[in-house]
Design a protein around this nucleic acid. Structure first.
Lengths: 190, 190
DNA sequence: CGAAAATTTGACATGACTCAACTGGAGTGG
DNA sequence: CCACTCCAGTTGAGTCATGTCAAATTTTCG
C-alpha cells in the first residue's frame, strides 16, 4: 500500500484521513504467473495498480492471432479500460507474466471514491492524460519508423522488459512476426 | 457557445451560475482554411473545442514526411495535449482543413477553472478517457487489419470525412502511401 | 483558361510474412 | 543422470503487401 500512496502523492496532495478513505476502498491481491487479471468476454470489474510483477494486455483477432497491446510493470495500471468504464464485456486479456501483486479498485468503489473525494477525479484525469499522450506517441512511431527502429526504441524505453519477456511477445507488441524480429536481432548482433 | 454547453451537459450537470463561470474563461475564435491552430515548435496555449469546421493533426518525421495523427470535426477537441499540459514545445501541427470556428480555453484559464469548479476535472477525465479508449482501439486495428480493411473501417467510422478530405491525408492517417490507397480504391470500385 | 495540386497508373524494388525444418535450452519423469 | 518432450528462438526459401519513382491524367481554383 505504501508504494501506491507514494504514487498517488505524486499527483495530488492527500491528508491522513483521506488516505484512510482511499485505502478502505482498495484491496490487495496476488496472482501467479500466467493467471489472468482480466479475460476477454468477462466484465472488467477492477482497475489494478501493479505493485510488483509484470503483465501483458493482448487480444485475439478474428483470425485467432494474439496481439499484445501493452505491457505493464510496477506503478502502472492494468485493466481493459473500455470494459471497466462501461461495465461491458472485455475485448482484452490481461495476463501476468510473473507472480504479480496488485492493488485493486472495483468499479463501484471507484465511483464512490469520486463522490467522497472529488480530488480523485483529478488524480485519474492526470493518469489517463499521461497514458493518452504516450499512446499517441506510439501511433506516431509506428507510422514513422521501420520495424528495426521500433525495436531499438522499445529496447531504449523498456530496458527492464527487453530482458525478461519472451521475444515473441515483443514481436507482437511491435506488430511484426517473431521470425522477423529474430532476423532483426541477428542483423543487430553483427 | 450553445453547442459547447450542450456538449458539456452530456458529461456533467451545470447550473446557470456555473455556466457563466465556464463561459467567462472561454473565447470564440475563427480560423480560415489552411491556417494553423497549433504549430510544431510553438507552445500549445489552448485547448480548442471545434464548433464548426474540420482540422487535422499531423507531424513531420526526421525524413520530412508528414504523418496525420488524427482528424477533428464538430464536437471534438484539437490541441497538442502533451504540449498544452506541460507548456512545452509542440511536436504536432493542428491545421484547419476548412474555415473553422472553435472555443478556446487557455492553459491558465483551464487551471483556474479546475480550482473554481472542480467538477471540470470530471468533465475532462471523461473526455480523455474516451479519447484514450479510441486511441487504443486504433492501435489494435492497425495491427490486426490490412490496409484495405483499415480503409473500409475508416469510411464506415468517418463517413463525413471520407467525402471532404484529400485522399493523400487519409492515406497518411491510415499509414500507407497515396499511391497505394489509390490502387485500393481502384480495386474496390469494381 | 491556365497553373498548380491531387489522383491515377504502371514498372520495379523491398520489407515483412508464411511455412517448414532445425537448434537449443528447461523441465519432467524414470 | 539420462532420455524425452516441449517451448522459444533461429534459419532459409518463396511469396505477398506495400513502397518508390516517374509519367500521365484529372481536378481544383485563381
Amino acid at each position: 500500500m505504501e508504494a501506491f500512496l507514494n504514487y498517488l502523492k505524486k499527483f495530488i496532495e492527500i491528508s491522513e484521513s483521506e488516505e484512510s478513505i482511499i485505502l478502505s476502498k482498495c484491496k490487495t491481491r496476488k496472482y501467479l504467473k500466467n493467471q489472468y487479471i482480466v479475460q476477454e468476454g468477462d466484465i472488467c470489474r477492477f482497475q489494478s495498480f501493479i505493485v510488483k510483477g509484470k503483465v501483458r494486455t493482448f487480444y485475439l483477432d478474428n483470425k485467432g492471432n494474439e496481439h499484445v497491446v501493452m505491457f505493464g510493470i510496477e506503478n502502472w495500471w492494468a485493466a481493459d479500460l473500455g470494459s471497466f468504464i462501461a461495465q461491458t464485456e472485455a475485448e482484452f486479456n490481461v495476463q501476468c507474466l510473473a507472480d504479480t501483486e496488485v492493488i485493486q479498485l472495483s468499479h463501484s468503489n471507484t465511483e464512490a471514491l469520486f463522490i467522497e473525494l472529488p480530488k480523485m477525479e483529478r488524480f485519474f484525469r492526470l493518469i489517463i492524460q499521461n497514458a493518452y499522450i504516450k499512446t499517441q506517441k506510439r501511433i506516431v512511431q509506428n507510422y514513422a519508423l521501420s520495424a528495426k527502429e521500433r525495436y531499438l526504441e522499445f529496447c531504449k524505453e523498456y530496458p527492464q522488459l527487453e530482458q525478461r519477456i519472451p521475444q515473441y511477445m515483443i514481436a507482437s507488441y511491435l506488430g511484426i512476426t517473431k521470425e522477423f524480429l529474430s532476423s532483426i536481432r541477428g542483423q543487430l548482433d553483427k
